[in-house]
């Protein structure tokens, strides 16, 4: 059992959860993830480690309530416990001094991009961050991002804050302004990552994305998280989760992530029903 030290909402439905996990806190590197099982009958859910405090022995994950398990996790408060955490898993981000590095986070992707942005800065890069959200209320980690950025941009789809438009448009604008960009990290919904790959492809800018396929064990044993990269099968849990964006088959990833849509819907409905009943009691 792992105790939750703090749990606060950053935006509607997005919660920052700090959990006791001393071994993981000591070992984790940017880009790695944990598998969390909330309760005894829970599924194993992969979540990127957003931050860690080795001295305190805690790690932080940022969770958007989407399916049943993430909603259940988001219902936890400080003092509650979760059943299992294993990690750190996945290959750490490949960090070097590229020159100018752009870290792009779309929606919850900002939480995943953040630790890598920190590592890129520590490696001596000129770091530009682009943090995209649908609207102002959904912007997360703005202060944290600014603190590690040489230039920080916010974009919102509805123009309620920062640049009015998509992260791709902001990136294109930066490229068009003549800025020499050596490296792009893009993390967010699949359509966003695919669009970023197409923005940078003509300029041959090295671009890395972090993929989020469905996983079971997260240690290489099951192959459920296989993705097609450069026409080869790769396992996101041991070969990734970060891959060269220009070689990823995003359509295959997007299709495979739909495998359990009816079951996910059923699980969410059952969970919502239970929560409702509990409220009434």
């Amino acid at each position: 059992m792992h105790k939750i030290v703090s749990a606060i909402f950053l935006a509607e439905n997005i919660k920052k959860i700090e959990i006791e996990a001393p071994r993981i806190a000591k070992k984790r590197k940017a880009g790695q993830f944990v598998m969390i099982r909330v309760g005894e009958t829970g599924e194993r859910v992969p979540l990127t480690i957003a931050d860690a405090d080795p001295e305190k022995g805690t790690i932080t994950v940022i969770v958007q309530g989407m399916g049943k398990s993430t909603r259940e996790l988001n219902s936890k408060e400080a003092g509650d416990s979760i059943h299992d955490i294993v990690g750190p898993l996945g290959a750490p981000s490949h960090i070097e001094k590229f020159g100018t590095a752009v870290s792009i986070g779309g929606g919850l992707g900002a939480a995943i991009a953040y630790p890598t942005a920190v590592a890129l800065k520590e490696a001596g890069n000129y770091v530009i961050t682009i943090n995209g959200a649908r609207s102002k209320e959904l912007v997360i980690l703005e202060e944290e991002m600014r603190a590690v950025s040489d230039e920080a941009y916010i974009t919102t789809d509805d123009g309620s804050y920062g640049f009015h438009g998509f992260v791709t448009q902001k990136l294109q604008e930066l490229i068009d302004s003549g800025k020499k960009i050596d490296f792009v990290l893009a993390i967010g919904p699949i359509p966003m990552m695919r669009a970023i790959a197409e923005v940078t492809r003509p300029y041959q800018i090295k671009t890395v994305v972090s993929l989020n396929p469905i996983m079971v064990d997260g240690t290489g044993m099951c192959g459920g998280c296989r993705v097609t990269v450069d026409n080869q099968i790769k396992f996101a849990c041991v070969d990734g989760p970060e891959f060269d964006a220009h070689l990823v088959d995003f359509k295959n990833l997007s299709d495979r992530n739909k495998m359990y849509l009816p079951e996910e819907k059923q699980a969410v409905e059952t969970f919502a029903h239970k929560c409702n009943l509990q409220k009434q009691l």
């Binding site: 099951c222 459920g224 079951e263 699980a267």
Partner: peptide, 25 residues
Amino acid sequence: VYSANEFLTRVNLMKSYQFPDNDTP
């Protein structure tokens, strides 16, 4: 399309034959 490891792990370890009482489908 599954690997045998994935199919069996879902059913044996994660008890997906008891979905939705167990979360893993």
